[in-house]
Design a protein around this nucleic acid. Structure first.
Lengths: 141, 141
DNA sequence: TTGCAAATAAGAACGATTATCATTTGCATA
DNA sequence: TATGCAAATGATAATCGTTCTTATTTGCAA
């Protein structure tokens, strides 16, 4: 466990709210959390954090490369730990579960298409909205 | 020009604001417009529409299948005419220009990946954020 | 024409996020 | 270990995109 160093390396003081937020992402059961999710879970654990602090910390962690921000449908930002390797997401329309995937063929085609149109890709965003085909829909029923 | 019939078919009365909005999308120079874009352009043309009406009309047109809504980065919804055939988007990071593309190989891989994970795709969203590689960046400099 | 349901404009209300600011805290230094 | 100060915090106001409310206007069928 070297969370404090992560913060230090990012030029951020090691404060209680920051450690708590990091802990949520590293040890919580959901990998993908909105600011409100984080806020409510911290309040539920008896932590006394402000919502403004949660927003600030999430943005700082994103800038520091500790978290990645996603813009799924629904208007609110969703964050997850930055594990280094890029991936895209499937969102289950029934249970809200978020599954990750990475497909080299898709990425290669993206590069090809962009190149033909005269663009160099800097970033991309791909989400699949889908229904579970098995009934082992693994989360909220 | 059969705009009024489009509206009638959608169960919508043929009103001035609705015709003006449709006209903007059909004959304006930008294909992709936010609610604010539409509102400002109408005001600029001397039309006296309310912002609330613009939002309502855009939502109705989306429900009627006349427009398609996109959620690009930046928080605001962007609409375009529904031409029937699905496509994805490249957004130029320099000029803000939106280019459309469609790649069967990408779509096929999406189906494959989702199927392997036990999902049936209902919808998807793919955006490429890119830099122009030619200097003929065709819009706002 | 006239009547009435549908549509409108203006502004209040809303949810997510950001800014403000007085108070508190981490931590380098004495 | 005590202390000073910049950085961080929490409460709250403000902002931004969007939706709701309501009194008024309008399309259109009779």
């Amino acid at each position: 466990m070297h969370r404090p160093e992560h913060l230090k390396n990012a030029g951020l003081k090691s404060t209680l709210p920051r450690l708590k937020v990091l802990d949520l992402f590293e040890n919580g059961k959901e990998r993908h959390l909105s600011a409100e999710d984080v806020y409510k879970q911290l309040l539920g654990s008896g932590e006394d954090v402000g919502l403004a602090t949660v927003y600030r910390v999430l943005t700082q962690f994103e800038r520091a490369g500790l978290l990645v921000r996603h813009h799924f449908e629904g208007g609110k930002s969703v964050f997850e730990l930055n594990k280094g390797e890029h991936h895209d997401h499937i969102l289950c329309l029934q249970c809200g579960h978020v599954e990750e995937f990475h497909d080299k063929a898709i990425e290669a085609r993206q590069e090809k298409v962009a190149g033909e149109l005269g663009f160099a890709i800097r970033d991309h965003s791909l989400q699949l909205y889908a229904d579970c085909t098995r009934k082992k829909c693994p989360h909220k029923p």
